[in-house]
Simulated assay, not measured.
Amino acid sequence: MIQRLLRYAYLLMVIALTACGGGSDPFYSQPPAGPGGGATPPVFPFGTNVPVPRAPVAALPAPVRTPPAGPRVLILYDEPEDNQYARLGRGFGIMLQNLLGHFDAEVQAIPVQQYRNGSVNEYHTTFYIGWATGQTVPTNFLSDVSRTNARVVWLRSNLEQMNLLDGFSTRSRWGFVPWGSRFFDAGPTPAGSVPSFFSTVYYKNLSFQKRATIYEGEIAADPEVFITEVTDRTRARVHAVIGNPATGATAPYVLQSDNFWFVAESAIQLHPCP
């Protein structure tokens, strides 16, 4: 058996050497004749050291993918300083960018701290991923959001900072008020079970359950949701609702007022479930 393998390996070596140096290479050229009429041995054992002339490249090939022809989209995400999870923001931005790729969108994703004045008006839609609750949102971005007619989609936290602007009120402008984040319900919970929280999303006649479980003795779930309340239903439209089955409480999940959209959680958040 070993002898057969050795013979097979030897045969492969002969074929490889023949292909490389025996004239079968299309770029191989025979070395020039020496003084005695014989061929001058090549410097290298395979082929020749004589350059093979090739026609110059006239032009670079066309790109495989044409530039996006869809809408221009800006993604802003929290990137808090001195936070061990700061890079999560970039990860969420990439995931949202991948989703928007289905619409052939031209997407730019940057930390919200790098926002420059007037940028919302240069894009068809601007997304803000407020995953870091309590993170200070730049005032220039808040101010532009309060005035722009371009579409803005705000995901989860820090919306209450809009009401810190002088002369601005979400109630008067958009017809709703932000209350803040909610997590697990307080109170005793039986051992081995997950506390109740806003876990069910209702859209039209469908319901979607957020996953929550116990994994290695720890609760694996993302319960945080940002609660808002509609004060003027002629101005604010609720497209989807999120509810807490244990208490019966509900809140807007997807909310729209004119060009401003709000989603009560970061729907692209990573869930630490097995």
Rank of each mutant, 00 (worst) to 15 (best):
A33N: 06
R87T: 06
V177D: 09
A62C: 08
S199A: 12
R235V: 04
P68C: 12
F208R: 02
H271N: 11
S24G: 06
R4W: 13
I242V: 04
G36H: 13
P32Q: 02
T18K: 07
L159D: 14
P80T: 11
I268E: 15
S196I: 01
S143Q: 15
N117Q: 15
R65N: 12
F176D: 13
Y253L: 13
E122W: 07
E216P: 01
L12C: 12
F198H: 10
L6E: 14
S143I: 00
R156P: 02
I15Y: 05
S196F: 04
G22S: 09
F127Q: 05
I75K: 00
D104W: 02
D166Q: 06
A19S: 15
V201P: 01
I110S: 07
P111D: 07
S193L: 12
V107Y: 06
I15T: 13
Y123T: 15
Q209H: 07
L11G: 13
A246C: 04
Q114S: 10
L255G: 01
Q114V: 06
G70C: 05
T247Y: 07
G243F: 01
E106C: 14
Y123D: 14
M13L: 14
N49Q: 14
N163Q: 12
T200L: 08
A264C: 08
A220S: 15
M95Q: 15
N121T: 10
R65G: 03
I268Y: 12
A236M: 09
R235N: 11
A39I: 14
L206A: 04
W154A: 02
F183C: 09
R72P: 00
G192Y: 00
G23Q: 13
T133P: 00
F27P: 00
A221I: 11
V254L: 10
P68Y: 06
G47M: 01
G118A: 14
T133E: 04
G93S: 10
V230L: 04
A59Q: 07
S29E: 13
Q3I: 02
A236G: 05
D232Y: 00
R211E: 13
F44G: 06
F141K: 05
A191Q: 06
A221K: 09
G134A: 08
D166E: 08
L165A: 02
P252Y: 11
G187R: 14
V225G: 10
P195T: 13
R147H: 11
T247H: 09
A69H: 10
S119R: 12
I214Q: 03
L12R: 03
P138M: 09
L74N: 01
L206C: 05
Q84M: 11
F198Y: 14
F141W: 11
L11P: 05
S169H: 01
F260T: 00
V225C: 04
N158V: 06
N98H: 15
E160I: 15
N149A: 07
Q209A: 12
R237M: 08
P272T: 09
E224A: 13
G23R: 15
L159R: 07
F198A: 12
W131K: 09
V112P: 00
T234G: 14
T247I: 08
D104R: 00
P45Q: 12
I110T: 08
I214Y: 00
F260V: 03
D25Q: 02
F198V: 09
V64I: 09
V145C: 11
P138R: 01
G101R: 02
P138G: 02
T40D: 02
T247P: 15
S172E: 12
E122L: 05
P61M: 14
S172T: 03
E160H: 11
V145W: 02
G167E: 01
F168K: 12
T125Q: 02
T148H: 02
